[in-house]
Every structure is written in structure tokens, then in C-alpha cells.
Amino acid sequence: MSDGPCRPGGTVLLTGLPSSGKTTIATATRTRVAEAGYAVEVLDGDDVRGRLWPELGLTPDDRKQNLGRITTLALMLARHGVLVLVAAIAPYAADRELMRVRHEDAGLDFAEVHVATALSACEQRDVKGLYGRRARGELTQLTGVDAVYEEPLLPHLRMDTAAETVDESTDRVLDLLLRRELIAAPPLRNGRP
């Protein structure tokens, strides 16, 4: 836990297609928030699944369980004043809504960020090689290709990482954190606000 400013914890879900930029933005935001002295953690959906519950696959039920477990972990951290940045595909609207309700029930802030990068840009990035594997027939049920992604209708923030830099996207998330009073002042970037 940080010795920095004491603020209430909360969770920001960054949801979007594979390779849309969720983890990149979450990680950049964590760096800036941590440098300002806040307790902050990134929970990446694939990383958490692989490390904590590798028995879960990519079926709709497994995806629901993964986000449900991540929500439980985020709530545990947020109750102790940690700002939690969840980077997860989270393809189903009902599961994201349950995440919001569980935070509200616990008296904790929750915000949804839709990383709405176009499928074509995600395919070009193909950070984990998923789109290439899908094209070669080695993978099925890829979200946004042959598995559903239900786009958020009213996210707190929508961004297209193909149309802005990492710094610009990070600044927009930081502005959201300020507006929701999860941080008190904008963290510095390269020694300036």
C-alpha cells in the first residue's frame, strides 16, 4: 500500500476487442497514478486467468466466471483504497452490468471505458497473434470475429487508440479519474502536469 494521498478505492474497466489497447492504456495509467503516490493495480483478464484460475477457457460460461472472479478481486482491493484498472475483453453487457452493480452495492466507484478501436486496427496489431491463428484455422471463438462482443451503449468514456497516442488516451483516463474523484490532482507526465 502506498504512503501517498488517501482516496477511496474504485474500479475502472477497460473493455474492448483483443489488441484494442486495453492493457497498454491501463499500464500507462497505472504508472502515472503510482508516480503521484496512489495505490493502484492493473488486473489484466488474460494474465489473471492464466495465473490464478488456468482451468477457465474461453467459453461464454468461462468468460462470465473469469470476469466475476476478477470483480471479486477488484472489490477486495478497492475496499482497501486501491484504484483498480481492469483490462479485460468482457464481451457481455450483462457481466459488465453485474460488475457495476456489485461495486455500487459495496459503496465503491465503478467506471466503464470502451476501448473502441476498430477490428481492422486490432487485426493489424495482433499483439498476441490471435487474429493470425484465427486466419490459419488454429483458433475459433475469437471475440469480434466469430464470437460476440456486445459494445457498451453508455460507457463513461469511449476511445479509439488507433486515432490517438498512448499519452492522449492515458490523459483521457486520468481526466475521468479526476472527475470521479478517484484522484485529487492530475499526475505529472515527464515532470509537467
Rank of each mutant, 00 (worst) to 15 (best):
M1C: 08
P5Q: 10
C6K: 13
P8A: 11
G10A: 04
L13K: 08
T15A: 15
L17V: 06
L17N: 01
P18Y: 04
S20W: 11
S20M: 09
S20K: 03
G21E: 08
T23E: 11
T24M: 09
T24S: 14
T24L: 10
A26P: 00
V33A: 07
V33R: 06
A36P: 02
A39H: 12
A39P: 02
V42S: 06
L43N: 07
G45S: 05
G45Y: 08
V48N: 04
V48P: 01
G50M: 12
G50Q: 12
G50S: 13
R51W: 07
E55D: 12
L56S: 03
T59H: 13
D61R: 13
K64W: 09
Q65A: 15
G68I: 11
G68A: 12
G68T: 10
I70W: 05
T71Q: 08
T72K: 13
A74L: 12
A74E: 09
L77P: 07
H80Q: 15
H80S: 09
V82E: 00
V82Y: 04
V82D: 01
L83Q: 10
L83E: 00
V84M: 03
V84R: 12
V84D: 07
L85F: 09
A88E: 14
A88S: 14
A88V: 12
A88I: 07
I89Y: 13
I89S: 08
I89D: 03
P91W: 05
Y92H: 08
A93M: 06
A94W: 02
E97T: 08
L98Q: 14
M99H: 15
R100G: 03
V101K: 14
V101C: 03
R102W: 06
H103K: 13
E104P: 03
E104K: 00
E104A: 13
E104G: 15
G107D: 04
L108E: 02
F110L: 05
E112P: 03
A116H: 01
A118D: 01
A118K: 09
L119V: 06
L119R: 04
C122G: 06
R125K: 04
R125Q: 08
D126R: 03
D126L: 06
K128Q: 04
K128P: 08
G129H: 02
L130D: 01
Y131V: 07
R133Q: 09
R134Y: 10
R136E: 01
G137Y: 06
Q141H: 14
Q141I: 01
L142V: 12
L142E: 02
T143I: 15
G144T: 09
V145Q: 05
V148F: 02
Y149A: 04
Y149Q: 02
E150D: 13
E151S: 11
E151L: 07
P152K: 01
L153S: 13
L154N: 15
P155D: 14
P155E: 14
H156C: 04
R158P: 08
R158F: 03
D160L: 03
T161W: 11
A162N: 06
A163W: 02
E164L: 09
E164Q: 15
V166M: 10
D167F: 00
S169W: 10
T170L: 09
T170H: 02
R172E: 13
V173Q: 12
D175V: 02
L178W: 02
R179F: 05
R180P: 06
R180L: 14
E181F: 03
A184R: 13
P186W: 06
R189A: 12
R192T: 14
R192P: 00
P193Q: 02
